[in-house]
């Protein structure tokens, strides 16, 4: 037997070997499609949204998030597909060879504008910067349905010390349900309940979170696009008028609470942590954290 046959001695370092390979993914066919007159090739399985992105066409989205399964319910991403009777959602429609797509036709602009008007006329959008920006872009007017248009206005739900639910601001994008459910946390504390205009996000029988399955990971807050879900610290500071994003710093660091290595984005204002989140594109967290990572930072704060 050669030298190599001997059991390793802790005294001798193991020699470096070539770096291990990661098996290549399955090769995908490439499809060519035409978007707004431009040809673009994308891999089979890609969505129209991804194809448009390749052409640097910015598509508005509200219910879409890279880390969640597309539910295509907000319909603000619709585009015109030649040969299709209705518009199609860019976020979830997979490309097929030869598709011809228009992302900025009259029809598309009208649908996007009306969808935004529908939302803004029924939901409080004060803390939804993205939605407000889209409204500007599509010249959407929330007032056009009159002062008596039904809204989802309702009192805030404050039933715990970590976060606040203000469903007056909820556009029912399903993101929180997905983050609480199969796409990340798998806790299923909330679901869409009811039907129609009264469909809403709820625990069973609207019981307080403290009686529900909620484990306060706050991953719902992490994906909420309108501020309907908000950390209590931010909520309190906004209420007191002290929340000031222009004075906040954002620092990337690593959560101290276990060995998984979750990346945190720590937002601080005036030397105090005011919010902790995680970047969506971090391979470990994909934006998700647990209760300790998202809320367990108060031990660093000077006592007030």
């Amino acid at each position: 037997m050669s030298e190599q046959a001997q059991a390793p001695s802790p005294l001798t370092p193991i020699p470096p070997a070539p770096a291990p390979e990661i098996p290549p993914g399955v090769a995908r066919r490439q499809f060519e499609i035409i978007i707004d007159g431009n040809r673009v090739a994308v891999a089979e399985g890609a969505t129209i949204l991804e194809a448009a992105k390749k052409l640097r066409i910015e598509t508005p989205t509200l219910c879409f998030l890279e880390t969640l399964t597309p539910v295509n319910v907000c319909r603000v991403c619709v585009v015109e597909l030649e040969g299709s009777r209705a518009l199609v959602p860019a976020c979830s429609r997979k490309v097929e060879a030869g598709m011809v797509i228009h992302t900025d036709s009259e029809r598309v602009r009208l649908s996007r504008r009306v969808v935004l008007e529908f939302l803004a006329s029924s939901v409080e959008v004060r803390t939804a910067p993205q939605l407000q920006e889209y409204m500007k872009r599509y010249a959407a007017r929330r007032e056009k349905f009159g002062p008596r248009a039904a809204t989802v206005a309702q009192p805030e739900k404050i039933d715990n010390e970590l976060y606040v639910r203000d469903y007056s601001k909820c556009i029912l994008c399903y993101k929180c349900v997905e983050a609480c459910g199969v796409d990340a946390q798998n806790t299923f504390a909330i679901s869409v309940a009811g039907r129609g205009f009264h469909a809403h996000i709820a625990t069973e029988f609207e019981i307080p979170l403290t009686d529900s399955a909620c484990v306060y990971c706050g991953n719902c807050i992490g994906v909420c696009p309108t501020g309907a879900l908000m950390g209590k610290t931010e909520y309190d500071m906004r209420k007191a008028g002290t929340w000031d994003e222009s004075r906040q710093t954002h620092t990337e660091t690593i959560c101290p609470y276990c060995g998984v290595g979750c990346e945190l984005t720590v937002d601080a204002q005036a030397g105090q942590i005011v919010k902790v989140s995680s970047p969506l594109d971090h391979s470990v967290t994909q934006g998700n954290l647990c209760i300790k990572g998202r809320f367990g930072w108060q031990f660093t704060q000077p006592k007030t």
Binding site: T253, L264, T300
Partner: peptide
């Protein structure tokens, strides 16, 4: 100091990933 938010440095996770920690807030007095 709280290494993860008051100082600069690195930590290593369970999967041997060396990652940067950074100071997000000043040290308490």
């Amino acid at each position: 100091s709280a290494g993860w938010c008051e100082t600069e440095g690195t930590v290593t996770s369970s999967e041997r990933r060396v990652q940067r920690v950074r100071a997000a807030v000043p040290l308490p007095e």
